[in-house]
């Protein structure tokens, strides 16, 4: 078991860097967010619309990956059906919009409520099982949601549902502006990152992490892991549902494919690729996954021939994902993973 890194929010004020020029690990998320905030200005120099839409998509998946990392990295709860929440968030937007309710002020609460309820129901059943069986039962619920979405023939069935426009924000169509949408997604990403950071650092989060290391001991000291795990599962599902709302708005389209098991697998891959249990690793993983896909597919239609072996090599030679490589490059032995 690798020791979990101290979360940055509880860390003492940054110690003076012992080796100037070396980036301290705690700064990484801040650098990431600053870069993301500066990007729209750089994007004005090039194909702005393309860049903004690509990076917006990256941030939305980063949000979903963070929600998964919260339960996967800190609670060892491998949810193989997490894409269901993307779909639930997306369909909340799509279905409400189809009935004329286009305002995010209604759509977002409905999406959060629906994903929270789904997480509560499925989590209460799934958390009875452990390990591989948990993986498979979450997959089962994900697949049920997938096939249920296909059966919604009134809302496009297999083909999905095209949105007439992006959601309104209190009656205003600000989301149609790509720059505004970018800023909103970034703000939500930072907000959810801070929220999950705080959760992980809190007493609640310590119970979750304790239950991951040794559930029996947690019970011996008087905590019932089940309730805590269920609560964090619901929180994770709601954050992922929010990502689904954003994804539907970004693509202006929802389809059952949002919930396919491959999508759930991709989310897991993003989290592991970036580096498990660090939250910003999930952002890096999502960015690496989607950008590599985008860049490689620009060069050759057979980009998967490169991407597949890349994943294998990361596993074989870079323990701890891309963050692990970063730590190695910095030559720090105490850098956590």
């Amino acid at each position: 078991m690798t020791p979990l890194p101290e979360p940055s929010t509880t860390a003492a004020p940054p110690r003076p860097a012992s080796r100037p020029g070396f980036v301290r690990r705690e700064w990484l998320p801040i650098i990431l967010f600053v870069l993301l905030a500066l990007l729209p200005f750089a994007a004005m120099l090039g194909p702005e619309k393309y860049t903004l839409s690509l990076v917006t998509r990256v941030m939305i998946f980063a949000l979903a990956a963070i929600s998964l990392d919260l339960i996967l990295g800190y609670g060892a709860l491998v949810s193989f059906g997490h894409a269901a929440f993307l779909g639930i968030g997306g369909y909340a937007v799509g279905i409400l919009a189809a009935h004329g309710f286009q305002d995010a002020a209604l759509q977002v609460p409905v999406a959060l409520l629906a994903s929270g309820l789904f997480a509560l129901l499925t989590g209460a059943i799934s958390l009875r099982t452990k390990g591989v069986y948990f993986i498979m039962i979450t997959l089962a619920f994900g697949q049920m949601a997938f096939f249920f979405a296909i059966s919604l023939s009134a809302y496009g069935g297999d083909d999905g549902l095209t949105l007439a426009s992006r959601s309104k924000l209190f009656g205003l169509s600000w989301l149609e502006n790509d720059r505004f949408f970018y800023a909103l997604v970034l703000a939500l990403l930072i907000g959810c990152y801070a929220l999950t950071r705080a959760i992980v650092a809190s007493r609640f989060g310590r119970v979750i992490r304790g239950a991951k290391e040794n559930p029996v001991r947690m019970e011996a000291v008087g905590f019932s892991p089940f309730r805590y795990q269920l609560a964090v599962y619901v929180i994770s599902g709601m954050i992922c549902g929010l990502a689904g709302v954003l994804l539907a708005n970004q693509a202006e389209f929802v389809a059952p494919a949002y919930m396919a098991w491959q999508r759930s697998g991709e989310l897991i891959v993003m989290v592991i690729l970036g580096g498990l249990g660090s939250l910003h690793g999930a952002i890096i993983g999502a960015a690496a996954f989607l950008l590599l896909e985008e860049i490689l597919s620009g060069y050759t239609e057979h980009w998967k021939l490169i991407f597949g072996p890349f994943l294998v090599l990361v596993v074989l030679f870079a323990r701890g994902g891309l963050l692990g490589i970063l730590a190695k490059v910095r030559g720090k032995s105490g850098g956590g993973r």
């Binding site: 996967l72 491998v78 993986i135 897991i268 891959v269 498990l276 998967k304 597949g308 294998v312 596993v315």
Partner: peptide, 27 residues
């Protein structure tokens, strides 16, 4: 090389193999 690794590493690596081989048969 993966037997001693944890399940998640195995999932990631074998997922990579799926991606590769699905494309390779196309080629």
């Amino acid at each position: 090389h993966l037997y001693a690794r944890d399940h998640l590493d195995q999932v990631l690596a074998t997922f990579g193999i799926i991606i590769f081989l699905n494309q390779a048969v196309k080629v």
